[in-house]
Design a protein around this nucleic acid. Structure first.
Length: 435
RNA sequence: UCCUCAGUAGCUCAAUGGUAGAGCAUUCGGCUGUUAACCGAAGGGUUCCUGGUUCGAGUCCAGGCUGAGGAGCCA
């Protein structure tokens, strides 16, 4: 019985006859020799089919294969410097599972394509080497995030996707009919629920999709994206910053360890990633404003950073920046105010270098009942909907905090790619939600 | 919602207001070591839509549609 292997395993089978199942990536041929390039999801394998060594009908079949036809190739693995992957396979047999017809050829040719065409054909474009590298790194990042939290005492407690009330205005929420005329909203964050589960487990995290109905149309925005959100009981802003820093160093290290090939494919400057070490630069919002003024930004104290401000702050830095102590005026209702400065809150944003902007946002939450009630009122939020959240401040309230990290922004930064839409298999952007 | 840019062959793009073209893909032919192979040939067009200016519009004008980039927005 000939063993079925993947292309990634070829190195362990040199000199053996094996079988690889995949798709025809490309085909180069002359009259009496053909080089089908096989793709199996694990790598590329150059196959060599020599006319004189094969039955005539089989050689003709190989010679006339079409791009992305599904095939199962049997042959002997051989190390060869002329092959792109270092190994090649001398074809002994080839079974065509499905042949792509010439009348309707595979639309994505090896030459250039525009972004519109690639997004229309995203279900096929994900077969390409670039998408394969990016999505492989995405997988590594997610696995690293989970390994980090799992090995630091955090329990994964998933939070609901359907939520009952708008936390802050319905304009950025997707509304759905839950049943009859009862409305529910797709989650924007699991944080409030995390605050409840943290009181049950001590340290928790959730990881899932989040939905924002914003009319944002930039390289940093998706309408559906994935977010990991840890939350810790008995934690302060400093604890939150330390965990965020440690986690980011850990995931970048994992990608460098396990995904060199993919980074090379993306032409990522890995020295930029190797520089991601603790401690990150830390500054307050006040200090950030001062730096921005020196760099000519028109930003006023009390404004949130714009995209260009984030770029200005990070452009000459090797490491991420942690900015904390923001004006309470533009931050959410649940942030704990600074003890010495009631006009600023204990929130922190982590800005990635190279202009990738905010990848982490979080901070310390209000734990005092009266203050929370006051803030809910100030923000004109429906108190009834927050009753369960208010309860958390009645029954053993403690200082606590956490953060959220958008997976796609982190992956775009680590990959060094221009647009966040490439970091998810099927991106949902403002005007495109298919395929 | 606003600003900017774009729309020509299946794809990526050319074409001074004057005969609509190339490369890739497809088809046919050639080639025993190719590396997005190469060489020769063929087929392939509602130039996004509607209207206008002009002897003549892919090109200029008006409106619309679609897409992209950005702004605002972004717990």
């Amino acid at each position: 019985m000939i063993p079925r292997i993947t292309i990634a395993q070829a190195g362990a089978h040199v000199g053996e006859s094996v079988q690889i199942a995949g798709w025809l990536y490309n085909l180069r041929r002359s009259g009496k020799i053909a080089f089908p390039i096989l793709r199996d999801g694990y790598g590329l394998m150059q196959c060599v089919a020599v006319k004189s060594a094969l039955p005539e009908a089989l050689f003709e079949t190989i010679r006339n294969l079409t791009q992305e036809s599904s095939i199962i190739v049997t042959g002997k693995i051989r190390a060869d410097e002329r092959a792109p992957g270092g190994f090649e396979m001398d074809v002994e047999n080839l079974e065509v599972v499905q042949r792509v017809p010439e009348s309707d050829p595979y639309p994505i040719t090896p030459k250039d394509h525009g972004i519109e065409f690639l997004l229309e054909h995203r279900h096929l474009a994900i077969r390409g080497l670039r998408a394969h590298a990016i999505l492989g790194i995405r997988h590594e990042v997610i696995k690293a995030v989970r390994d980090y939290f799992d090995s630091h005492g955090f329990t994964l407690v998933d939070t609901p996707i359907f939520t009952p009330a708008a936390c802050e205005g319905t304009t950025t929420l997707f509304e759905v009919n839950y049943y009859e005329d009862n409305k529910a909203y797709l989650t924007q964050s699991g944080q409030l629920y995390n605050e409840a589960t943290a009181m049950a487990f001590g340290k928790v995290y959730c990881f899932g999709p989040t939905f924002r109905a914003e009319l944002s149309k930039t390289r940093r925005h998706l309408r559906e994206f994935w977010m990991v959100e840890p939350e810790m009981a008995y934690a302060t802003l400093e604890d939150v910053k330390r965990v965020a820093e440690e986690m980011l160093v850990f995931i970048v290290g994992r990608v460098l360890e396990n995904r060199r090939e993919e980074l090379k494919r993306l032409e990522r400057d890995v020295t930029r990633l190797e520089a991601i070490q603790a401690p990150f630069d830390r500054m307050t919002y006040d200090e950030a404003i001062e730096i921005l003024h020196q760099k000519g930004s028109p930003i006023q104290w009390g404004d949130d950073f714009g995209g260009t401000d984030e770029t200005l702050l990070t452009q000459d830095r090797q490491r991420p920046i942690m900015v904390d102590r923001f004006p309470a005026s533009f931050k959410a209702f649940y942030f704990e105010p600074a003890a010495d400065r009631p006009d600023v809150v204990l929130g922190v944003d982590v800005l990635a270098p190279e202009g990738y902007g905010e990848i982490v946002g979080g901070g310390q939450r209000i734990h005092d009942l009266d203050l929370l009630l006051q803030r809910i009122e100030q923000h004109k939020l429906p108190k009834e909907a927050f009753q369960w959240y208010i309860d958390l401040r009645k029954y053993g309230s403690v200082p606590h905090g956490g953060f959220g990290m958008g997976i796609e922004r982190a992956v775009a930064w680590i990959c060094g790619i221009e647009h966040i839409r490439e970091t998810i298999a099927f991106p949902r952007t403002l005007y495109r939600w298919a395929p």
